[in-house]
Computed example of a mutant assay.
Amino acid sequence: MPYEWVKELPDTPTESEGPLAELHLWPYRSLPRKGFVTFFAITSAFIALPLIAMIGSPVMWGLLPFIVIAMGLMWYLLQRSYRDGDVIETMTLWPERVDLLHRDKTGKTSQWTCNIYWAKVSLHPRGGPVPNYVTLKGNSREVEIGAFLSEDERKELYSELLLALPRAARKQ
Results as ranks from 00 to 15, higher is better:
44 S>R: 04
48 A>C: 12
138 G>K: 01
142 E>T: 12
147 A>P: 10
36 F>K: 13
63 L>G: 11
85 G>K: 15
109 T>P: 00
134 V>A: 09
106 T>W: 09
147 A>G: 14
150 S>H: 12
110 S>Q: 13
121 V>I: 12
93 L>Y: 05
91 M>R: 00
159 S>M: 10
24 H>K: 03
29 R>Y: 03
172 Q>L: 13
107 G>H: 09
153 E>L: 04
53 A>V: 05
13 P>G: 00
149 L>S: 09
160 E>P: 08
113 T>M: 07
88 I>E: 14
16 S>E: 15
26 W>F: 03
95 P>Y: 01
130 V>S: 08
22 E>K: 10
51 L>D: 09
134 V>T: 03
68 V>S: 10
144 E>M: 08
149 L>N: 00
16 S>W: 06
152 D>M: 02
119 A>M: 01
74 M>R: 14
45 A>C: 08
50 P>H: 13
32 P>G: 08
168 A>F: 00
30 S>W: 13
122 S>R: 15
90 T>S: 09
71 M>N: 11
137 K>S: 12
69 I>P: 02
42 I>W: 12
81 S>W: 09
142 E>C: 01
85 G>E: 09
138 G>M: 06
65 P>I: 04
155 K>I: 13
112 W>M: 04
31 L>E: 04
119 A>R: 01
76 Y>K: 15
116 I>C: 02
7 K>V: 00
45 A>W: 10
61 W>A: 14
122 S>D: 05
149 L>H: 05
36 F>G: 03
17 E>C: 04
138 G>C: 03
72 G>M: 13
106 T>H: 15
99 D>G: 04
51 L>G: 04
73 L>P: 11
161 L>N: 11
111 Q>T: 13
64 L>F: 09
122 S>C: 11
120 K>A: 06
88 I>S: 15
100 L>P: 06
99 D>N: 06
10 P>C: 00
38 T>H: 11
34 K>I: 11
151 E>K: 15
98 V>W: 01
56 G>K: 08
10 P>Y: 05
61 W>D: 12
143 V>P: 10
124 H>G: 00
6 V>Y: 03
138 G>L: 04
31 L>Q: 03
35 G>A: 06
82 Y>N: 11
94 W>I: 02
77 L>H: 08
106 T>F: 12
67 I>M: 06
146 G>P: 14
35 G>F: 05
67 I>C: 08
13 P>H: 01
1 M>W: 02
20 L>R: 00
81 S>C: 07
83 R>Q: 12
19 P>C: 07
18 G>I: 01
26 W>C: 03
46 F>V: 10
148 F>E: 01
64 L>Q: 08
